[in-house]
């Protein structure tokens, strides 16, 4: 392509670096202007972070959060992609599902917690379901909307080749919606992550980032609060910008050549 439409290489990293510096600067400015028991500065928090990483408790909490995320987000991806694709070829099902999603999506997933707690009991399950619910809607919607814009000529060409329904889905619909699918997966991840932290803060079962954050707040340990927030931000950025971005470049290789 002759025209460059996106930043690449060092320039892109520079832009990201600038954003990080900007955020840290605001934080540090706040720390300088407020008393340290209210707003700890970056060095104090980093020190606590490194100390925490040494503790097995902290690492177990992290593992707990990540496994809840993995289970909930994984379910949402699987079902979101599945329902979205089926909606792509069954028009009546699509409209029904879309209407249902529009209604259900308006309810913050965290609002289901009281119900889930009573129905499913106090444990991991309600948190996983909340995460799955939060991620499912954007995932299914983006895949479903993308199937509508699959080019008829691409479908016709495969049908002429003798493609079965399953081959049509696997070889035409799925790759055709891949760009929107990945955008949907990134959107869904954002939702899943927010739902996870809120659910952990609210339910407070077992160990996890949200629980640890809420506990630090309860005992007015601001260094702990900021440490947890920092970990939440770093992890989410890593997953979104490194893992999902890499996956995107791999799946959409043809767009980058």
């Amino acid at each position: 392509m002759s025209q460059q439409r996106r930043l690449t290489g060092p320039k892109k990293y520079l832009a990201v670096l600038l954003a990080v510096v900007f955020i840290l600067l605001i934080w540090q400015a706040a720390a300088w202007s407020l008393p340290s028991f209210l707003m700890p500065g970056i060095p104090t928090v980093l020190e606590r972070l490194f100390a925490s990483i040494q503790q097995p408790e902290f690492r177990e909490g992290l593992a707990g959060s990540m496994s809840r995320l993995g289970a909930g987000y994984g379910f949402a991806l699987l079902f979101g992609i599945g329902f979205g694709l089926v909606g792509g070829i069954l028009f009546f099902f699509r409209e029904t599902l879309r209407a249902a999603i529009v209604i259900l999506q308006s309810i913050p997933s965290i609002a289901w917690v009281p119900l889930f707690l009573i129905v499913m009991g106090f444990g991991n399950l309600p948190m996983i379901v909340v995460v799955a619910l939060a991620a499912f809607f954007p995932m299914a919607l983006s895949v479903m909307n993308a199937t509508e814009s699959v080019q008829p000529v691409h479908v016709a060409a495969a049908r002429v080749m003798g493609a079965s329904r399953w081959q049509l889905i696997k070889r035409v619909y799925l790759p055709a919606v891949m760009p929107e699918l990945i955008t949907g997966a990134q959107l869904a991840f954002g939702n899943a992550w927010r739902a996870l932290i809120s659910a952990e803060m609210l339910i407070g079962f077992g160990q996890g980032l949200g629980r640890s954050l809420a506990y630090s707040g309860e005992i007015a340990d601001m260094v702990g609060v900021m440490t947890n927030i920092l970990v939440i931000a770093i992890l989410a950025t890593l997953i979104d910008q490194v893992v999902l971005e890499k996956f995107k470049q791999r799946m959409l290789r043809y767009q980058y050549v």
């Binding site: 060409a157 790759p175 959409l252």
Partner: peptide, 11 residues
């Protein structure tokens, strides 16, 4: 059937 254009799969 051979179509006018854009019938190849871009991926």
């Amino acid at each position: 059937l051979v179509f006018q254009e854009h019938a190849l799969y871009p991926w």
